[in-house]
């Protein structure tokens, strides 16, 4: 009788254990929801009604640029968590981007850019600071190329730091004339120069 009891309890235990081990918990990461579509046009740049296509496109990229700038500011402040949050939002912004107003050739280019950019935004949302900066470098290239196609109604400065990535250099976009380097943080806050003005 005792033997039977032991055997039964062993079996029960085993089955329970089995149940536990087979329940691999899948982490479901809640995709960051984009913020309300309310946009701030601090520079007060007015849109001309004649350029309707342009303004539609700008509405499309506005949230992308906004969250990109949030990442940039977070990296300037070496704030990993804020960069990660903005990265998550940027990832959904890119996924929601509407390519339909563009020519098929532009759409192809945009698809290339966006596929790449989504991965960088995703990595920024889940990586440590230095990795975030690496992906921000490539993300900046993507966004600069994207804006070359879509345009924007925002006044932007394309800045360049020749020292990042073992002196290979890296660009970024900013809304201010003043240089605040996102790649080195406080170590080299003022390294860089304005390469180009957009608008």
């Amino acid at each position: 009788m005792k033997n039977l009891k032991t055997t039964v309890s062993i079996l029960v235990l085993s089955v329970t254990l089995l149940g536990f081990t087979s329940c691999k918990d899948k982490k479901t990461e809640e995709a960051a929801k984009p913020m309300s579509s309310e946009m701030h046009h601090e520079d007060g740049h007015s849109q001309t009604s004649s350029d309707k296509m342009m303004s539609e496109a700008s509405g499309n990229t506005a949230s992308i640029i906004e969250n990109y700038l949030k990442i940039k500011n977070a990296l300037v402040a070496s704030n990993e968590d804020e960069a990660a949050t903005a990265g998550g939002m940027l990832e959904s912004n890119f996924k929601e981007f509407d390519k339909s107003p563009y020519s098929s050739e532009e759409q192809k280019e945009l698809t290339d850019i966006i596929t790449d950019a989504i991965e960088h935004a995703e990595h920024i949302s889940e990586s440590p600071l230095e990795h975030q900066r690496e992906h921000f470098d490539l993300l900046s290239k993507d966004l600069i190329d994207m804006i070359a196609i879509t345009g924007t109604d925002k006044k932007l400065y394309q800045d360049y730091c020749p020292m990042y990535n073992n002196n290979k250099g890296a660009a970024w976009l900013s809304t201010t004339k003043e240089i605040k380097n996102p790649y080195f943080g406080s170590k080299m806050m003022n390294c860089g120069k304005i390469q180009k003005e957009i608008n």
Partner: peptide, 18 residues
């Protein structure tokens, strides 16, 4: 002994999960 046996049974058991 029992613990070892339980672990062994569980180990063998999980091998059947595809």
């Amino acid at each position: 002994k029992i613990t070892a046996l339980v672990l062994l049974v569980a180990f063998v058991g999980i091998q059947f999960i595809p």
